[in-house]
Design a protein around this nucleic acid. Structure first.
Lengths: 243, 243
DNA sequence: CGGACACGAATTAGTCATACTTAATTGGGG
DNA sequence: CCCCAATTAAGTATGACTAATTCGTGTCCG
């Protein structure tokens, strides 16, 4: 490949491995609804369209199939499945949807999920957090305070993400902990896409400090309540931005 | 292949497609900790060990890689990743873990997740459920009442699962709705594995009726509270059974 | 004499082309 | 109306080749 311009279609192609590149092109296309449910793709067609071997096309299809984005049947082809079938918890699928036309719906689902999970995680964290985690929470809450004014949103975001990650991890529940990446994506999306220029609301910052305090004092109820307010604020914010 | 007995190793082999069979053998082995994190598999070795072609072995590895169960690197091989990396929300991974030695931990994680999600889902359902869904809830709650006595656990389970599925679906949140299968797996596991012979507690049945009533009356707070009690009972039950 | 760097050999995943098998659909003939 | 055969596209197998990465070795410099 002498990089003569061919193949610069729609994929950023930052992935390495042909199958990964194909996946990075097909996945977003499907989750964006570019191929409506019921659309039939043929591996051979995919192979020729993307200029890869059938082997590579098949591997990409296999992965899409494991995400329940498509279904592969003999004599029929690779059928795109309806969104209800998709593995909406797959981090890859979440990423694709957040990057595409489905962004609004995905953000809303995730925010509702956060509103369910994070308060409970905060209560568990109050019961189970290690001293190091307590210290980390305080540190990041203070970091949020310090960066909450004067257009330091990027630094604020770092502390915000770290704070929520720590809470989720401190809950000692592997499934909660796994949502750290998702929360990070949501928070990053808010900062980078929606309200880039307004400083965070002081009340929100205070609430994070409250959570950190409550966890340190092992006050599960208070930690849960404060976190619930945080997530409710996030939902309200979403309603304002995308009604 | 003259089916002369070779290949009847450890896989139930109910799956169709060689790669699916390989996956159904490798996946559970990995999630069960049979291959500790850091273990290196080579695709060629897998191919010969399972008597399939490298093509098939590679496709299975691709899927495992998309679940973050393994990582494939050139000149190294296919490395098993530590559990923290696994996509613990992947329904396949959940199924494998529920079937293997990790069952206890998985059940506990899922029950905690339920305790976070289902109450919120019940509140949303009270706000958003369609008349048909309200009717379905009542129907299944009554079904639970009718089957709660006299060793009809299988029928009871059907209504229980349908009830929780309906609540999750009625919340109008795609991510909540997707947990229907997970809840079904947890409930089925409890019935089939833990307390096969004791009738469900009457209080639990009443609580389901309460949820159905509250949803029908659009009383979000009451629906949430009742559901919260249900999930707290489930956690308590888990503590009794597996301390 | 010892260490660091560079180069090359070995290893293993990745890619490709091709030939063949299997299952499901479709349509024609009994 | 049912059954069978032709067709189609996925599934499997194989062999050859590419490419990246690690590791060992050897040389050059300090």
């Amino acid at each position: 490949m002498t990089s003569q311009g061919a193949g610069r279609e729609e994929t950023p192609a930052r992935e390495r491995g042909l199958h990964a590149r194909l996946l990075a092109s097909l996945g977003p296309s499907i989750t964006a609804g570019e191929y409506p449910p019921g659309t039939v793709l043929r591996t051979e067609e995919l192979a020729s369209r993307y200029e890869v071997s059938r082997t590579v096309a098949r591997e990409a299809v296999r992965v899409l199939e494991s995400m329940h984005l498509v279904e592969s049947r003999r004599r029929v082809g690779v059928t795109v499945l309806p969104p209800e079938e998709w593995d909406v918890y797959d981090p890859q699928v979440i990423t694709w949807r957040l990057a595409g036309t489905d962004r609004g719906r995905q953000l809303r689902s995730l925010t509702v999920l956060r509103s369910a999970v994070e308060p409970v995680a905060a209560r568990l964290a109050a019961e189970l957090a290690t001293p190091e985690e307590c210290a980390g929470l305080t540190e990041h809450a203070l970091g949020m305070v310090a960066t909450s004014r004067g257009q330091q949103l990027e630094n604020y975001l770092v502390h915000d993400v770290a704070f929520h990650r720590t809470v989720l991890r401190a809950s000692r529940n592997e499934m909660f902990a796994r949502l750290g990446d998702v929360v990070a994506a949501v928070l990053a999306g808010r900062t980078h896409h929606d309200v880039m220029f307004t400083d965070p609301r002081p009340e929100a910052v205070t609430l994070h400090v409250n959570v950190a305090e409550a966890v340190r004092e092992r006050d599960g109820a208070r930690a849960e309540a404060a976190m619930r307010t945080i997530t409710e604020d996030a939902m309200a914010e979403l309603d304002v931005l995308a009604p």
